[in-house]
Simulated scan of single mutants.
Amino acid sequence: MDTSRATEITDLIQRLGSQIPIETELLVLVDQALTHISTGRTRNLERLEFLGDAVLRLAATEFIDRYYSDLAVGACSNLRAQLVSDRWLADVGATLAIEKHLLLGRHAQGDRSAQSRLRADATEALIGAIYASFGNLEAIHRWLTPHWHSTARAVLATPHQFNGKTALQEWSQGQALGLPHYFTEECSHKHGDPDRFLCQVSIQDQVLGEGKGRSRKEAEQNAATAALKALDKGYET
């Protein structure tokens, strides 16, 4: 790693929290987290993204247990889904302008439609890198807790805006149209693939929306959100 790259990564780490010690091992891991698979390099973000996925879910669970211990389990699950979502990860990455620090192959550089996914993947890999360097969740919590507080307040204040399935079900039942039907298929077996599952949601055999996700639940939520947007433009029975 050359001096300019080390300086760039150091600046990024310092924006995560002033209490994170800058060590050589951390610099190497963060550099790996910011190296996309498309570069063809052996040391890339894939393994750290896999680790970051698990670390993020555990840290988010601890956050909810610490600050929202009175929430019912179902509400905790719904809240956590928002605190670990691709959209949330992309938003956190945007606060760091993380895409400016990514090493990308030529194909990925030209795909502007994938910028949100690239931010989410890199942010998740960055979480994995920090955990791998320190072996605990302290630095993760210091970095992410302010972001989680902001998201949690928004989710709990307007839960239907963050739970497309619930809102769609309430709409369909209110219209006496029965329950929405979700058809989900697995399109790949790659862990962390944002397009791994594809879901279509229909009401009375009319497809209203579709969505993709890393899990069946995420794909269903995205499909329901797409359906609600379609309903805002008008629904024909």
Rank of each mutant, 00 (worst) to 15 (best):
E62P: 01
D193R: 10
A226W: 11
H101S: 06
A132C: 01
C187R: 12
N136W: 10
Q82A: 14
S215K: 08
R142S: 07
D70Q: 10
P159C: 09
I98D: 03
Q173A: 03
E8N: 11
A176S: 13
Q19V: 10
D11E: 13
V30R: 02
F50A: 02
A154S: 14
S77A: 13
Q173K: 09
W171A: 00
A122F: 13
I9Y: 14
I98W: 04
R66S: 08
R41D: 13
F183Y: 05
L26G: 09
H181T: 02
Y235R: 13
M1F: 15
S18D: 11
Q204L: 11
G40I: 08
L71G: 05
L118K: 12
F63R: 01
T10P: 15
W148G: 08
V73K: 14
E138G: 01
C187A: 07
G135F: 09
L96M: 14
L56M: 06
E220W: 00
T184A: 07
K100V: 15
T35R: 03
L156M: 06
L177G: 00
R87M: 13
T184W: 02
T35H: 04
S18A: 13
S215P: 07
P180G: 05
L168H: 04
H181Q: 02
T24E: 13
L102Y: 06
F162I: 02
D2S: 15
T35F: 04
C187P: 00
G110K: 15
Y235C: 09
D232N: 03
T237E: 10
Q32N: 11
A176F: 10
P21V: 07
I98K: 03
S116L: 13
H147F: 09
T95A: 10
S202H: 11
L51D: 01
A122V: 14
G93Q: 13
L96G: 07
G128L: 11
F63L: 06
T42P: 12
Q221V: 06
A94T: 15
D70W: 04
R57D: 07
E8F: 09
T10R: 15
D65Q: 07
T39I: 08
I37L: 15
I22T: 14
Q175N: 04
Q206I: 08
L96Q: 04
F63M: 03
Y235Q: 09
F197T: 03
L118S: 15
Y182L: 01
T184I: 10
S18R: 09
K100A: 12
V55G: 00
D31I: 07
V155H: 05
